[in-house]
């Protein structure tokens, strides 16, 4: 049993504060959904957790079982059990998935394991033979992100908009596989999304609403239903404040941007 604990996390980009005191706690086997409007800083959170160098952490802590991750380079965070499925996975020519997971584990994974997972996720052989993400469709990207997740068996996975670019069938395959991991290996999941439809496939234990760079309220799955009914404006009104202005530039970058969800 492991715990990923985020306490009062603050981070900025070029002097602008994006994360404004994030508190979250995810335990092994749990699925947490983090929902927020565009520009609320959701993707920033995923990259700050993973240690991307473009962001400056100004306060707070991120631990797995009490061990501080902030200050560790990205690859060491991954080896401590943190995994990020990227929203826009970058193409790396000539580096196959098997090469990648081989290097990620210092030769700890054989090709057969990758083949088995490819079978479970209906990833065709041609996508294993190519450089990772090279000319992959959105659906293939997310299937192969999930494939890497399954092969590497981390303790916690941050899913950054894993539903974007996925058709319904692929979303189901990916969700079933992640759900199985929560049972098989006790994977803890933090699923960042703005689509409620993900939560019909990947059923969350907890739902957190993220606005203005922090979690403004948390609840059970019924919170997602409320959000769907009243939107972020309605929810903010119930909580007694207005939806903050976007804190990050995600809005302009996101081709799936829709108001609310």
């Amino acid at each position: 049993m492991s715990v990923l604990k985020i306490t009062n996390l603050r981070a900025s980009v070029e002097g602008t504060e994006i994360l404004r005191g994030v508190d979250l706690e995810v335990s092994s086997g749990e699925v947490h959904a983090l929902m927020g409007p565009n520009g609320s800083g959701k993707s920033t959170l995923s990259h700050v957790l993973m240690g991307r160098s473009d962001y400056t952490v100004t306060d707070g802590s991120v631990t797995i079982d009490g061990e501080e991750l902030l200050g560790l380079p990205t690859w060491e965070r991954a080896r401590r059990g943190l995994f990020l499925t990227h929203q826009y996975p970058v193409e790396v020519a000539g580096v196959r998935i098997v090469d990648l997971v081989d290097a990620a584990t210092d030769h700890g994974i054989d090709e057969a394991r990758v083949q088995t997972e490819a079978g479970r996720l209906a990833v065709r052989d041609e996508f294993l033979a190519r450089g990772v993400n090279v000319e992959f469709s959105g659906g293939e990207q997310k299937r192969t992100e999930t494939l890497q997740l399954a092969v590497l068996e981390p303790r916690f996975a941050i899913l950054d908009e894993i539903d974007s670019g996925l058709d319904v069938d692929a979303l189901r395959v990916v969700s079933r596989r992640i759900e199985a991991m929560t049972e098989e290996t006790g994977l803890g999941v933090l699923a960042i999304t703005h689509y409620a439809r993900l939560l019909t496939e990947l059923r969350p234990d907890r739902v957190h609403v993220f606005m203005g760079g922090r979690v403004v309220t948390s609840g059970g799955p019924e919170l997602a239903d409320e959000l769907e009914a009243v939107g972020y404006d309605g929810l903010a009104e119930r909580l007694g404040f207005a939806v903050p202005k976007p804190v990050s530039a995600e809005v302009t970058e996101d081709p799936f941007a829709t108001p609310g969800f």
Partner: peptide, 22 residues
């Protein structure tokens, strides 16, 4: 960043990318 986010050490990531490039 992508490779390192999987746990690949920076020097191995660089090597993989250069080899992949060729």
């Amino acid at each position: 960043y992508y490779l390192e986010s999987r746990g690949v050490k920076p020097e191995d990531a660089e090597r993989l990318i250069v080899l992949g490039f060729f």
